[in-house]
Design a protein around this nucleic acid. Structure first.
Lengths: 202, 202
DNA sequence: CTTCTAAAGGAACTTCAGTTCCGTTAATCT
DNA sequence: AGATTAACGGAACTGAAGTTCCTTTAGAAG
């Protein structure tokens, strides 16, 4: 007597269920990347994934629900931070990583679509915030180590420095439409380091 | 013989046509602010505006088309910049203005929806970029004047300083979900000023 | 290997956003 | 003031996204 207590996929997560999830998330990522959030319908995703549309509607229900699951998947495959030994170079490495992600053929449009989805759906927003919480936690130690070395004032808010570095890249990407190039990334890293040294985040 | 050469509303823009446009844009703003981009349909907007839905479909066609027109309208009512006489205080005034806009009951959700729409629609994106081009052009002179006074290095990129100030606020608003408060705004202004003085934008 | 049932799949159905058609209203020009 | 026609508006129509119902497949347990 093993009744289904939760959502579909929780009680028998192995084998076929896992293959279906993988195929659907992959197809969803493809569709999001090339049509954006408005252009995705679940029946199309099901067709691309080679899966019955009933299955997609039953397990994910709506486009934002599917996007939230996709984000949870993406959070798992987060890269480890750089350890160059100096604040400026660590931050430059992070800026380069963000630049590479946002300008990537597939990842860029995907992030754009996901952030757009989060703007109008609380479930997606929560998943997005968790995603960036993980990223910031991964990279903040760069700043903490710099503080320990005395490169930035004691009491500097490490999270804030990471955000300050990321922000200009995302701002261009989402809001102003100004170009995103290695120069921009380098300047974002340099500016964050300079402001941190000046004690703007203490 | 005055045949209609352009889109509806171009050949007889006065009177009723203008009233309809005003009512529809107002209703569209309300709907966007409280349902977000995904939750708006043109028939509902028409009903709220007290206008035939055929009219809305004929003149604006799609939700992004309507949003683009709304943005063009918003760009007209841009506020003049502050002139406090010092870089830090000018930048603090701008940060305060952005904070006020993004946390406003109506304007905040509206901006969120509009930026989300721009993520998947080129027409909306173009309108959004024009909007921020206007804002940056309005405020960049603060930095140029500071450079003339010798407060920041000669050759500092004024536009870049304004973006650097705006970015952390928008990043929190759209991406990370961290709180937006006067403290954050003050820190964004201080950091932009510090980085500019250090020559990070020269 | 057999049993049990969670999860997938197919097909018909429903609902509603978006379109089309055509009659009505009112802005502009003489 | 009267004529012209751009633009509005109501109502019926269309098509596809999303739902429901029932059957089939295959993962987990004994």
């Amino acid at each position: 007597m093993n009744q289904a207590t939760g959502a579909p996929g929780t009680s028998r997560p192995g084998g076929r269920t896992a293959r279906v999830r993988e195929a659907v998330l992959r197809a969803a990522g493809d569709a999001l990347a090339d049509k954006g959030i408005g252009g995705v319908d679940l029946a199309e995703v099901a067709r691309l994934a080679g899966v019955g549309k009933t299955t997609v509607y039953r397990r994910w229900g709506t486009v934002p629900g599917l996007v939230a699951d996709l984000l949870a998947e993406m959070a798992e495959s987060s890269l480890p931070r750089a350890r160059t030994g100096a604040l400026e170079t660590d931050l430059a490495a992070l800026a380069g990583l963000i630049l590479k992600t946002l300008t990537d053929e597939r990842q860029g449009p995907l992030f754009k679509a996901v952030i757009a989805a989060a703007a109008s759906d609380p479930q997606t927003a929560a998943a997005l915030h968790r995603f960036y919480r993980v990223r910031i936690d991964e990279w903040a130690p760069c700043v903490a180590e710099a503080a320990a070395r005395g490169d930035v004032p004691a009491g500097t808010d490490a999270d804030e420095v990471v955000r300050a570095l990321s922000a200009p890249l995302y701002y261009r990407f989402l809001v102003s439409g100004d170009p995103l190039d290695p120069d921009t990334a380098a300047r974002a890293a340099a500016a964050a380091a300079a402001a941190a040294r000046a004690g703007a985040y203490a």
